[in-house]
Design a protein around this nucleic acid. Structure first.
Length: 557
RNA sequence: GCCCCUGUAGCUCAGUGGAUAGAGCAAUGGUUUCCUAAACCAUGUGUCGCGUGUUCGAUUCACGCCAGGGGUACCA
């Protein structure tokens, strides 16, 4: 990345110099952007500045480029600068530069790929946050996978990141869930009991009821009272959350903090927040409910904060307190919430909360990932807890595998309403890009293993003799990863790194095909050692990438 | 009605204000005395949904339209 800044500086200096010498007219501000051309013939880097300046200078791009190039002297890294139609300046970089970068990768390790985007800001990444009313199903997997990889990307980008799961253990859904559970338990302990209509009819609730009953020694004939009801509910919650944790663990998704919604009600915190808003004329009473005056803050409607029927807080109500807590108690500089698109209506509401508390709205970012259309052999699967058509993440992992599952989710932009065909994912598993990437990794491991058995020493081998096209292309690619990580961090997107992993794997395979690494011939000893050094560093880099993607690094396949 | 997302190769999806729009899968043919053939090589496909505008330049930006999906609760 430094090279881009360097080239940009060279061009800027040249332009300023030309302005001083009156070869170019004076222009107030210009920004020299250095790109990577798509085609190798166009060099390693390019800039379109002649096109940008042409109109302002009233000169042809060719003329401007010639003037700029005149002042640029070649150096240790830069081998050649050329104009290209319709108005680009292309830069060709010496191999020596890339050898030096490769040495840096070797000596600095993961540090080489870091950037300073976050400037040590305290950032909270909140994701998954599914109600503890049952097992996680496939619909929740996308946000989980994206969040867990984004975490690693942001950490490499100089943010202090905390991953949080918000447990909605206090709302209406929880109440309905508990009611359903208790019905199931009544069914267990009373033969004649008939369940009429419950909100959560899923089978997993029967299992949970059995589990809870067993642990609390409830059996046929037991009576329910306020004391064991309380125990049932808290036990069920902890079991459910534990199951969610285990599922996420399997999916390689970890959290630093599990925040209970119910904590917001402790010490009257929630009530105090409502009181504060009432004092500010932002909460009022209507129809025996308390309302947040969203219309005063630019929303179309006012929103209920405290329900009229039982005086309990709504989801939005506790979210007021929750976001107050995030920004004004825990003082996060930045909060990123990853939500499913079904929460879309909530976005403007949350921003109105920030407005109410006078929090800069740039501090909150919401990533909405679009819904996933799960299919089985072309037929859409509709999910509903009611009809018990529910594919859990556990089942998904068993069917498709963690690595493939993660790769598929990571490789799509969150804005895409993606299709996920379970049958196709399984069927194509052997042809899946995920294995292509891992196979490249395994191959590199294999070469290193062979080298070790032959006791070849290569860690300081001379890199200058690596001049094959496929060697150079591979080295160049490795040095490109910092840019990709920065791009992912800036855009809060993960799919650029999966694309990159494919491209890198492809170059590794090409290199493998065209450049025999281990040789017993005496005259090829040096080349062999140099190539081993490249292989080892490529293996390390691909390993970092697999770690960011949360995938396994198979040494053999 | 209003709000959001999407529309790119047969399928699943990347991509970008620029120089020849890409990948994987699928299809066809070829490659193995040699570090892993889960690999490699070769072959083909596009009105970038439609229209107008902004621009030296638009698939990319703006507006309009069409199509698909999601949302629009005193649920979360």
């Amino acid at each position: 990345m430094k090279i881009k800044r360097l080239l940009s500086q060279l061009v800027s200096d040249s332009i300023i110099e030309s302005q001083v010498s009156k070869k170019l007219p004076t222009i107030d501000n210009f920004d020299v952007i250095i790109d990577r051309p798509k085609i190798a013939e166009h060099g390693d880097f390019s800039t379109n500045i002649p096109l940008v300046l042409a109109k302002k200078c009233k000169m042809s791009p060719q003329k401007i480029a010639d003037i700029i190039i005149e002042n640029i002297s070649l150096n240790k890294s830069l081998s050649y600068v050329a104009f290209a139609n319709p108005g680009f300046i292309n830069f060709f970089i010496k191999n020596d530069y890339f050898y030096d970068e490769l040495k840096k990768i070797q000596s600095q390790g993961l540090d080489y790929f870091k950037n300073t985007l976050g400037r040590k800001q305290k950032l909270q990444l909140e994701f998954v946050s599914v109600n503890p009313t049952g097992p996680l199903h496939v619909g929740h997997a996308r946000g989980a996978v994206i969040g867990s990889s984004l975490y690693k990307i942001l950490k490499l980008s100089d943010y202090y990141v905390e991953r949080e799961y918000y447990i909605n253990d206090a709302g209406n859904q929880m109440r309905l869930f508990n009611q359903s559970l208790i019905e199931r338990i009544k069914e267990l302990i009373n033969e004649n009991y008939h369940i009429e209509d419950i909100s959560y009819p899923g089978e997993y609730l029967i299992d949970l009821a059995k589990d809870v009953s067993k642990k609390l020694s409830l059996s046929k004939g037991s009576q329910l009272n306020s004391k064991n009801l309380e125990k049932i509910i808290s036990l069920a919650l902890s079991i459910t959350i534990n199951n969610i944790k285990n599922t996420l663990e399997k999916l390689n998704v970890k959290f630093d903090s599990w925040f209970n919604e119910s904590n917001l009600l402790d010490d009257n915190f929630f009530q105090k927040i409502v009181k504060k808003l009432s004092d500010d004329q932002l909460v009022f009473i209507k129809d025996e409910a308390k309302w947040f005056k969203g219309t005063k803050l630019g929303l179309e409607d006012d929103i209920v904060v405290i329900r009229s029927d039982d005086g309990g807080p709504t989801y939005f109500g506790t979210d007021l307190a929750y976001h107050y807590n995030k920004f004004l108690i825990r003082k996060f500089d930045k909060v990123i919430n990853i939500w499913g698109a079904d929460h879309h209506s909530h976005v403007s509401r949350i921003y109105s909360i920030l407005k109410a508390f006078e929090i800069n709205n740039e501090k909150l970012e919401i990533i909405l990932n679009q819904i996933v259309n799960f299919k089985n052999d072309g037929n859409s699967l509709k999910f509903s807890k009611r009809n018990n058509v529910l594919v859990t993440i556990d089942e998904l992992i068993d069917e498709v595998g963690v690595d493939a599952c993660r790769f598929i989710f990571l490789s799509r932009s969150p804005d895409t309403q993606m299709d996920f065909d379970l049958k196709l994912a399984k069927l194509q598993s052997s042809e899946n890009p995920v294995y292509y990437v891992q196979y490249a990794y395994a191959r590199m491991c294999s070469i290193i293993r062979t080298a070790k058995t032959k006791q070849i020493n290569f860690s300081n081998a001379n890199l200058n003799i690596l001049t094959h096209n496929d060697e150079i292309n591979l080295i160049k690619k490795l040095t490109q990863l910092p840019e990709i990580i920065l791009k992912c961090a800036q855009l809060r997107q993960t799919h650029h790194i999966t694309n990159f992993s494919m491209e890198l794997a492809k170059l590794l395979q090409k290199f493998y095909e065209s450049c025999r690494v281990i040789s017993d011939k005496e005259e090829e000893k040096h080349l062999s050692a140099s190539r081993l050094r490249l292989v080892e560093n490529s293996r390390l880099v691909l390993g970092y990438i697999l770690e960011i993607m949360g995938m396994s690094k198979p040494e053999k396949m």
